[in-house]
Amino acid sequence: MSVSEAPLAVTQPEKGISADARSRIFNIAIPLGTAISLLLIWQFGVRIFEVPNYIAPAPSDIIAVFREDFPLLARNFWPTLIESLSGFFVGNLAAILIAIAFVHSRTVERAFFPIAVFINTIPILAIAPILVLLFGPGMTAKVLIAALICFFPTLVNMVRGLQAVSPQTLELARILSASKSEVFWKIRLPSSLPFLFSALKIAATTCVIGAIVGEWIGADVGLGALIIDSTFNFRSPLLYATVFVSSGLSVFLFVSVTVAEKLIVRW
């Protein structure tokens, strides 16, 4: 298309809706339409082939659970939310502080980095029973499991972020005779923020997984406990509803971190 034709295409009126608005509606309509179609296929597939409710519940059965068993879901939602959030803060705070120690001292890094890698290689499913044995059936073990699962990605990203300062910027700091703490607060820490937020986005979803895994091992309340309970009692619609609540919690935490990033990392 030649350049002279371009304005024609742009100014052509499309029944009052601009091309920009149309493409925005399209961007929402396509994924939404796909999701609704899949749900309909699921709904009618289950009904047409007469799949028993306990093997695969229809979406309408799951919606019914949300309506009837809402207090049960809510009662089990709060402990998991608290464990996930506590684990998120504990794990990330530990990772940030240890990353700062690593960047300031090569010796500390050499001493502790192999241990951090080793802990990260232990499957979370294997370490969870150990922590439950150590800390009992209360919240502590779940918080620690959630913290552990957040820890490593944040550590690695934070170390990279604190080191992601160009040599020229460090030369500038030297010419300005900046002290070590000024370099840290004014240069290293802000430049690590984009890296930190990538890690926090990972942690926002994994901390929920950590809390649920912890609840599987030994808990009376929480979404993890509800998943185990509904599975053993063949209450599949409740199981599915719990799974949706769990992923909803992850999405909520992920979106919160993304919004915080938009507000803080403006560059």
Binding site: S166, Q168, T169, E171, L172, I175, I187, P190, L193, R266
Partner: peptide, 12 residues
């Protein structure tokens, strides 16, 4: 004072 090839501004 020094001016580098790259502006070395702090992006934030």
């Amino acid at each position: 004072a020094f001016v580098f090839q790259d502006a070395t501004l702090l992006p934030w």
